[in-house]
């Protein structure tokens, strides 16, 4: 990250090769089309460059930080889209396909959604719903609690437990 921030040769390329697939995939899942996913990749790397000195290793690994920067931008994009549409449908599930998606994009997005679903089979339905809302939907625990009709403490526990179980389960399969 330091090399990237200082503009050292090859650092940007290395960071791109390492993280672009995950950011692009996140864009496909959350934003639903190739153009938006590509924009998300570009916007994320520009933001990483601008905020390189804000990365705090004590707060989490670099992988997570990069991913959460991308996720935050994707959520901003969804919110802008919601404001633009200004219809009741705009509050539909965030992974709804955009109307200008091609059949290939829809297929890829479906595949991504399927992979996400498979990865989350280790979770209970409640944990999965809470994590989806929090991770892909950018919802706070209070919002998750309200949407799921569960106590706040339960929502927090479900999100936390889901992340810990995913870590254990997915690492076992790698």
């Amino acid at each position: 990250m330091r090399a990237f921030a200082h503009g050292e040769a090859g650092a940007a390329e290395e960071l791109y090769d390492r993280y672009a697939p995950r950011i692009y995939g996140l864009g496909m899942v959350m934003l639903g089309n190739d153009a938006s996913a590509q924009d998300l990749v570009q916007d994320t790397f520009v933001k990483l460059l601008r905020n390189a000195d804000r990365y705090d290793p004590a707060r989490g690994k670099l992988d997570t930080w990069v991913l959460l920067v991308a996720r935050s931008l994707a959520i901003d994009g969804i919110r802008r889209r919601v404001l633009d549409v200004r219809t009741a449908e705009a509050s539909a599930p965030i992974r709804e396909m955009s109307t200008d998606s091609t059949p290939e994009e829809i297929a890829e997005t479906m595949d991504m959604a399927e992979r996400a679903k498979r990865a989350m089979t280790v979770l209970s339905d409640g944990q999965r719903a809470a994590l989806e809302l929090a991770y892909f939907g950018g919802k706070t625990s209070a919002e998750v609690a309200e949407l799921e009709g569960i106590p706040l403490g339960t929502a927090k526990t479900r999100i936390r437990t889901a992340l810990l179980r995913l870590r254990e389960a997915l690492e076992e399969h790698q």
Binding site: M120, L164, L166, R167, Q174
Partner: peptide
């Protein structure tokens, strides 16, 4: 938790 997010991604 950070590992969980990263691995899941």
């Amino acid at each position: 938790l950070s590992e969980g997010v990263s691995t899941f991604a």
